[in-house]
């Protein structure tokens, strides 16, 4: 061969092994595409991915439950007596609220995960596969719901140990968890949109918490709004987080009214209906 490159140091081919190194590729079976899978099958594969992540990165569970555990302990034992007369009474009030907060906060992580996947180019691979275009998001949701279940279960477990008792029993608790998953599903869209818009996962987190802190604190999660100034109270009373918390308290204590449940569902339903098309549009745009 003639000298094609002036720079001799850039011609390592002279020192390379003969081309017989990997017979494996040549022997690789040619595989035609199988019958295309359905959307549900695709979504379940993404859900399976979320479970695998739990196995490989168990630390993420720590991220999910550490804040709510700290909140539960701090609020119950530091403020509880002063706020509700006794720590036991306060825990009874606070626990359904912290479940809502946990789920709402956790939905930030799916936005971060999405942003990471985009950054790594993983979504480009998914998008060149002949699969249902919303499957990656549906899968993300499956993973989210699992996260919500696990985190909610752990917080409830700790609550039970500390003396929390759901008056509505097992059935009420199951209904409350169904409500929690619905809330998480609805909130998830907000952060999927953020994850699609923002390039860096850290920014997604910062932005997410900037939105969530005021919304969760200016709610009835921690305290009864009765003592708040009028202008704040009027916000707290219509804050979707308050409505969700009220319905969850109702479900777990067995006193939920249909209107409470209906009001709590407004935000998740509206968010899903408005943001799902936005997500699809943004995804096609990227």
């Amino acid at each position: 061969m003639t000298d094609l490159t002036a720079d001799a140091s850039a011609s390592p081919r002279t020192a390379s092994a003969p081309e017989t190194g990997t017979p494996g590729i040549a022997a690789l079976r040619r595989v035609p595409p199988p019958t295309p899978p359905g959307p549900l099958s695709n979504a379940l594969v993404f859900g399976w991915r979320a479970i695998l992540k739990f196995r490989h990165v168990p630390e993420q569970l720590f991220d999910l439950v550490m804040t709510p555990i700290m909140f539960t302990l701090l609020f119950t034992f530091v403020f509880g007596g002063a706020l509700a007369g006794s720590t036991g009474d306060y825990l009874q009030y606070f626990l359904p609220g912290i479940l809502v907060q946990t789920v709402v906060f956790n939905s930030v992580y799916s936005g971060m995960g999405l942003s990471t996947d985009f950054q790594k180019g993983l979504f480009d691979r998914f998008r060149t596969l002949p699969i249902w275009s919303l499957a990656p998001f549906a899968g993300l949701m499956v993973g989210d719901l699992l996260r919500h279940l696990i985190a909610g279960g752990i917080i409830l477990g700790i609550g039970l140990i500390l003396g929390y008792r759901p008056d509505a029993g097992l059935f009420g608790t199951l209904a409350a968890f169904a409500m929690l998953l619905t809330i998480g599903f609805g909130m998830g869209w907000v952060f999927i949109v953020l994850g699609l818009l923002v390039r860096t996962p850290m920014t997604v987190m910062t932005l997410g918490f900037t939105i969530l802190f005021p919304v969760t604190f200016a709610s009835n999660i921690m305290v009864d709004p009765a003592t708040m100034p009028g202008w704040l109270r009027s916000f707290v009373e219509v804050n979707p987080v308050s409505l969700m918390t009220t319905s969850l308290r109702g479900l777990m204590s067995g006193t939920a009214s249909l209107s409470q449940i209906g009001l709590a569902l407004i935000a998740p339903v509206v968010l899903t209906l408005t943001l799902a098309p936005v997500v699809l549009w943004l995804y096609r745009l990227r």
Binding site: R49, L52, K53, H56, V57, D117, K120, G121, L122, D124, R125, T128
Partner: peptide, 12 residues
């Protein structure tokens, strides 16, 4: 397609 950055899930 194999993108410019390894399009893989690093945790898996």
């Amino acid at each position: 397609m194999t993108g410019q950055f390894a399009s893989l899930d690093e945790d898996l």
